[in-house]
Design a protein around this nucleic acid. Structure first.
Lengths: 204, 204
DNA sequence: TATTTTTGATTGACTGCTCAATCAATAAAA
DNA sequence: TTTTATTGATTGAGCAGTCAATCAAAAATA
């Protein structure tokens, strides 16, 4: 029946349905049938396009990683100074599409998944590595390398922690206050590592 | 009856087996049979003592919360100054028994669980609430209330984030460096909120 | 002390259900 | 006709929870 070229459409629909279903159920204990139903197709078709549930889940992770990269590129485009680059890297993580409850839920369950799936773990390491190198690179232009890495490490952990806490909260997301926490952290750490310079960055 | 008084022994053994099994499998997708086997009993006995898998899991969460409280009391006993209390609250979260890989894995999966289980969510909120009030109370003695809450909020998220990252790392835990990250965070935030006072607390 | 009774502890076998994955068949384009 | 899209039906595995039955210590009794 179907017109040719359904593959990418179905894959996209199934991935987005997976994110929503994971959010709704609050865990990875979702069935292929539930995901497929939400995408408006049969579970058999989901298997047809992804081969296995595992593959669908991994594709969903990759999709989220790609979206994050896209958002990062978009925010970074506006950055001019190193300090501004830091701000934009942080902001990319709290974009509406990233800080969306369903997306946050998905990230959380993927962290658990990474504990038993080598490929999932690899993907999360890619994410953590990129975040760290983006932050550390910009930081290295305003402080020494040791502090740069330490601050990047802390900021990364802080972002992860804010995600976790977001997942536990009900109600609408508050990206701005989360961004503010990380910004304040970075400012405070920079101020401590270079007490001679100006503290404020005009965002406080 | 057989040796009377088996109940507490079995319950304890099953709870500890649950933590280990969850760690080993990296998720909550563990069977009662696996847990029971590790505890050296039949799955039927696990049901006999806990009623349901769900109840066993919740008991495991409560057990971890209790252990954390115990560790907290122990570290707090040594604290004299408000700043020292903060240090000890932080340290309690990175005690060897808390920062143990299996325990960290368990906390991580419980965070996911909290998304679909109201009781699990309640328990995590108890944890987050205690941590926050402990930190905020001590902080309020060295800075104003607004900053105290903000710093406590950030420190809590940071601790959660460090746990997540610990779960993803292989190899032995490094509690000291994690503690150092949080300590540095607190110092930096305090320094920024009160730029006139001394920055160092002698731990940097 | 010896015997009987009582009852918590414990398990193997079983049930009913869920789910991932497969397959054969159908429908519509190309 | 050949290829792509699609699904209902089916299967085989795995699992939570139940239950009837057994075991052995402890308490009561003789």
């Amino acid at each position: 029946m179907p017109k040719i070229g359904m593959q990418p459409i179905r894959r996209q629909a199934l991935i987005e349905a997976a994110i929503q279903t994971i959010h709704e159920r609050g865990s990875l204990e979702v069935t292929v049938g539930q995901i497929a139903k939400r995408a408006g197709v049969s579970s058999a078709l989901a298997h047809h396009y992804f081969g296995s549930k595992d593959s669908l889940i991994l594709s969903t992770m990759r999709y989220l990683l790609t979206e994050l990269t896209t958002d990062l590129r978009a925010t970074l485009a506006a950055a001019r100074t190193p300090r501004d680059r830091i701000t934009q890297v942080i902001r990319a993580n709290f974009t509406p599409s990233q800080f969306d409850p369903a997306v946050v839920s998905a990230w959380l369950v993927f962290y658990v998944r990474a504990q038993s799936s080598p490929e999932a773990r690899r993907l999360l390491r890619v994410y953590a590595g990129r975040l760290h190198s983006n932050l550390a690179h910009a930081l290295a232009q305003i402080t020494d390398s040791v502090h740069a890495h330490a601050i990047a490490e802390g900021a990364g952990a802080l972002i992860d922690g804010l995600y976790i806490r977001r997942a536990l909260k009900s109600g609408s997301p508050d990206p701005e206050s989360a961004i503010q926490v990380v910004e304040t952290f970075v400012d405070a750490m920079l101020a401590q590592s270079e007490p001679i310079r100006e503290i404020s960055n005009g965002r406080g």
